[in-house]
Design a protein around this nucleic acid. Structure first.
Length: 985
RNA sequence: GCCCCGGUAGCCCAACCGGCAGAGGCAAUCGGCUCAAACCCGAUCCAGUGCGGGUUCGAAUCCCGCCCGGGGCACCA
């Protein structure tokens, strides 16, 4: 891309003194940015407390409108032009809503804990707080220069001690809660978080049964705590977790990709059994799924969340196993429980499959039972050998290999036989890696007649197939395989129950009823979602506000002792390992400061020695609740609730409560949340979970944190590679048409190839906002970003096209100001009717486009109208002032400047957005298109009110139309007065 | 393999409930301004809507089947 920029005035050029140049734009922009700050123009007014608007008033009659951008991460690399797209978009919406009279709350904080900040600090050899704070300063400067209408009093960073305090406070609320599935919530729903004290009280009173059936009174203090600790929403648990040696920390499932690597850094991840903190997000699985109905989010993101939660309704069925080591002919072997979504096909279960890790396989028969077929044994002499070999093989397979083998069915007979509870048949139990230990019960009943995978397995292992569902009208000719579609049950009856003839849904209900009655199973629901692994072994995160006592049980640090600050440690870089060193173990950097770790405190029963928890929270913690901080960044120090809760309830209700304004839904929440789709299941799921806990505990009234979500597209860029595959600076590449008409790209005389993708340092194609401010000014940059296309679409950056936006603003400037003298040229003449028509048409259209977040088409209409004014000899003030106001949300600095020069003292930030006058929207005449057989043959200028009959007559008389009909008989005439007539001959 | 989004001029993109394929911008060409050029001003050029069917008086738009690009999920019982 060649960028022969020549917009900078040079000494040689006779540049008019008052032209809207980048230099003048800079001057105007910086001046207005200062004024906005000084006047508090964008201070959002709370209904009470110290945060008032710029004039010192509390929230008035305007409806509250809360806009948010996804939390930026202050990266050391600085911004490129792709980053601000969403910020400009929200700014445009915010400024527009403000001009429509809303009380707009828009601020921006910084998500500053986490791996990249830590890695950047380690690289540069400085403390992460130092580099992070520097990065924030840089980013703030870059963003301020863009003219964003943020309330800067409400900014913060997650690393601020006052912020950490509340992150830890919320953790303690979650720690102090358990989930009661029977609890009736304020919103009428069933199931919710309750305080641990209530659980203890119910145990003590005997109104709730203690797990294990013991009596509360018989338990000592330690045992009681164990009972309670196991039920907390934040709990410590020893279980298989994702251990990533390359990062030196454990990771949540959401942070591991499908092929078993870390999302960040792409290192291998291993399953290790470790004692770690978890959050009981699974308790909220139903609500997290169901409440998606209540919010205005892209369907794509909703489906990704539904998919991730993976609710699946079915039944658990228990099969007796008769082949256990201590074989008992009476059937006293163990039982294996399977999960199935198709209990109606139980009669077709001709074998069972358990995951290689299934505990049933810890003991298998010493010899193959009678009836074992050759294909089942894998050539092994005994089940013991066969199973051991297969388990070894499966364990050695990486997630990637397992992935690649999907579809190929491997497995082996375990020697166990199980009894199908429906028909009493003994069926073989196989182990195969297509059954996963981590889902359902780790065991399935295999129904090859109704499941493709099970059928594929029978093809490799010589197993019988029984169909239990027959499609309407019988199986197709020559059908063999699994029938997964609708139909009626067949082959499904025993002495007590018959499904035959029933449809799938009725059959499910009938068999579940029978299973429940006989005790062989019951209806159940499973989820793909697992509890959220919440601890990390890194330095740069929030410490857990938890102490471990002498008995190694967790104790909450009292609220008044928060925040727990990060200790100084000799080395804050994490202990990392060879990425494939699966036997390594995590080591928390916080543990390196002994003085910090060991504390003596009096928590009510005399001074005791405690050991601090040395984990840190994942960086999702800070972004789980930051939207609440914007509402109440000062802890309402002067309000009645003064710092007793994470947010003043009055403020939460005003800004976020259900139906807090005309467009807010039943769940309430942020009115517009803009960000990339990459957080679809991480941040957005975690934040919803925390919000629901806070709801249950009575701290918030909104059911959901984000009422409306919008995913913006990405700004992409071209990159160029030479013959050796090296990237060359994109800005220095020139483009020429080649011999075949295709463009040829050259750099320093050599031909290079063009690629399309991200903007990045290593791709040598970064364009920064600072360059744009320098070459064009912030307003031009904003107009260009907004005019490139619809907000939700990704599109390529093209620096040389920016000049179009600059020309627009220059023409607008010239329509008000004389370039030579600087004098205001707008006249007090009454605009002509044609101009008024154009103006009011523009107002009406721009309003619609702005309300639907389509700044690209709004800008197109503004340009059209501006071009109309350019064509006039003299531009009337009454024609250009509304244009200045309409431009203001998009190019606010130049609009403010023109507004002031036009003689207005006050900022236009809260000036009412123009309203169209209906009388200029009706046209004198409209052009009616006359089609003959769908082809345009003539046009008529007619009155808008023309009747269908008159229009038809006029159309049939039009000379071109008469010629086109050419005497053929008219069969039909379609009239859509006043715009269209179609004549069919 | 399944699901979602997209495909309109050389490029980025408009086109509301099916009704004239073009709002805007970039590039290109020509003209005006200029000693000349840039800037600026004016004008022009350019596609029949990825492909094939269907419905309709009429399809970019609705339906069916493909192709291409982007994204998500992927042995989930």
């Amino acid at each position: 891309m060649s960028t022969p920029e020549n917009t900078t005035p040079t000494a040689a050029g006779p540049e008019p003194a008052h032209r809207y140049t980048p230099a003048l734009a800079r001057d105007i922009e910086e001046r207005w940015q200062d004024r906005w700050s000084e006047r508090g123009t964008f201070h959002a007014a709370n209904p009470s407390g110290s945060l008032t608007d710029g004039a010192g008033g509390h929230a008035g009659t305007g409806q509250p409108f809360f806009i948010m951008d996804m939390f930026p991460y202050p990266s050391g690399a600085g911004l490129h032009v792709g980053h601000p797209l969403g910020y400009i978009a929200t700014d445009v919406v915010g400024r527009f809503r403000m001009m429509c009279g809303d009380n707009v709350l828009h601020a921006l904080g910084y998500d500053a804990f986490g791996l990249p900040a830590e890695q950047y600090a380690v690289q540069t050899g400085q403390h992460p707080r130092t580099t992070t704070e520097q990065n924030i300063v840089t980013m703030k400067r870059q963003l301020r220069r863009m003219g964003l209408a943020h309330d800067e009093r409400r900014t913060f960073a997650t690393i601020d001690p006052e912020y950490v305090r509340w992150t830890q406070w919320i953790f303690l609320q979650i720690f102090d809660s358990w989930y009661d599935p029977e609890h009736v919530r304020p919103d009428g729903g069933r199931g919710g978080a309750r305080r641990i004290a209530e659980l203890e009280a119910e145990y003590a009173a005997g109104t709730r049964e203690v797990p294990g059936g013991v009596a509360w009174a018989d338990l000592d203090a330690g045992a009681r705590r164990d009972v309670v600790d196991a039920q907390r929403l934040a709990y410590v648990d020893e279980s298989p977790v994702n251990w990533c040696p390359g990062l030196g920390t454990v990771l949540a499932n959401e942070e591991v990709t499908a092929d078993g690597r870390s999302e960040r850094g792409n290192y291998p991840v291993f399953q290790r059994s470790l004692r770690q903190w978890k959050m009981r997000i699974t308790a909220y699985a139903d609500r997290l799924t169901d409440d998606l109905e209540l919010i205005d989010w892209p369907e794509k993101v909703k489906s990704m969340q539904r998919n991730w939660i993976g609710r699946s309704v079915g039944a658990n069925v228990r099969f007796d196993v008769v082949g256990t080591a201590e074989y008992d002919a009476a059937g006293a072997g163990g039982q294996v429980e399977v999960f199935t979504t198709r209990p109606d096909t139980l009669f077709g279960a001709t074998f069972m499959v358990v995951a290689p890790e299934h505990p049933l396989l810890d003991e298998v028969p010493a010899a193959w039972p009678e009836g074992t077929r050759a294909a089942w044994t894998g050539g092994h002499a005994s089940p013991v050998e066969a199973v051991a070999a297969y388990r070894r093989e499966a364990a050695a397979k990486t997630a990637v290999e397992r992935q690649a083998d999907a579809g190929k069915k491997t497995g082996v007979f375990t020697g166990h036989l199980a009894v199908n509870p429906a028909n009493g048949q003994a069926i073989p139990v196989f182990t195969a890696d297509y059954v996963l230990m981590g889902y359902g019960t780790g065991a399935i009943m295999a129904v090859p007649g109704g499941d493709e995978r099970d059928f594929a397995f029978t093809q490799a292992f010589d197993l019988p197939v029984v169909h239990t569902v027959e499609p309407e009208g019988g199986f197709p000719d020559g059908f063999s395989g699994a029938w997964t579609g609708a139909g009626r049950a067949i082959n499904s009856a025993n002495d007590e129950v018959s499904l035959n003839g029933l449809g799938v849904e009725d059959a499910k209900a009938t068999i579940v009823e029978w299973l429940t009655a006989t005790g062989a199973g019951e209806g159940t629901t499973t989820y793909r979602l697992r509890d959220w692994l919440f601890s990390r072994q890194r330095y740069w995160g929030e410490p857990f506000p938890i102490l471990w006592d002498a008995d190694d049980r967790p104790v909450a640090i009292p609220g008044e002792l928060l925040p727990v600050d990060l200790p100084d440690v000799p080395d804050y870089s994490p202990r990392t390992f060879e990425p494939d060193d699966r036997d390594s173990s995590p080591e928390a950097p916080l543990g390196r400061n002994d003085e910090w770790v060991h504390v003596t405190l009096d928590l009510g029963d005399g001074p005791q020695t405690y050991r601090r928890d040395t984990n840190t929270m994942p960086n999702w913690a800070g972004s789980c609740w930051y939207y609440l901080r914007y509402l109440d960044p000062t802890d309402s120090t002067d309000g009645p609730a003064a710092g007793t809760a994470v947010v003043d309830p009055e403020l939460e209700q005003y800004w976020m409560g259900p139906k807090h304004n005309a467009t807010s839904g039943p769940a309430g929440g942020v009115d517009l949340y803009v960000g990339g789709v990459e957080h679809a299941v991480l941040h957005l799921l975690y934040a919803r979970f925390w919000h629901k806990v806070l709801f249950d505990l009575g701290y918030v009234t909104s059911l959901e944190p984000f009422g409306k979500l919008f995913n913006q597209g990405y700004i992409q860029a071209y990159a160029f590679v030479d013959d050796r595959g090296q990237y060359v600076p994109a800005a220095e590449v020139t483009e020429e048409p080649g011999a075949d008409g295709e463009p040829v790209y050259t750099w320093n005389g050599q031909v290079v190839q063009r690629e399309y993708g991200k903007m990045g340092k290593s791709l040598k194609n970064v364009v920064t906002p600072d360059e744009m401010y320098e070459q064009y000014g912030a307003d031009t940059f904003r107009v260009y970003e907004m005019s490139m296309g619809p907000l939700d679409l990704s599109r390529p950056w093209e620096t040389r096209a920016v000049v179009g936006s600059q020309r627009f603003l220059q023409r607008l400037w010239r329509n008000v100001v004389d370039e030579e003298t600087g004098a205001v040229t707008a006249t007090d003449d009454e605009p002509e009717v044609a101009t008024l028509r154009a103006l009011h048409r523009t107002i009406a259209d721009v309003r619609v486009e702005m309300e639907h977040m389509r700044p690209n088409t709004a800008i197109a209409k503004l340009i059209t109208y501006n071009n109309h004014l350019t064509g006039l000899d003299r531009v009337p003030r009454a024609a250009v002032e509304p244009l200045v106001l309409m431009v203001a949300p998009i190019a606010p600095h130049v609009a403010e400047e023109l507004w002031e020069r036009l003689g207005h003292d006050a900022s236009l930030a809260r000036e009412p957005f123009p309203v169209a006058d209906e009388q200029y929207l009706v046209e004198d005449t409209v052009t009616c298109v006359v089609q003959v057989k769908g082809k345009v043959r003539g046009r008529l200028e007619v009155a808008p009110s023309i009747s269908e009959a008159d229009l038809q007559a006029a159309a049939l008389a039009e000379p071109n139309v008469v010629r086109a009909i050419d005497g053929a008989p008219v069969r039909k005439v379609i009239v859509r007065a006043p715009k269209l007539v179609n004549i069919v001959v």
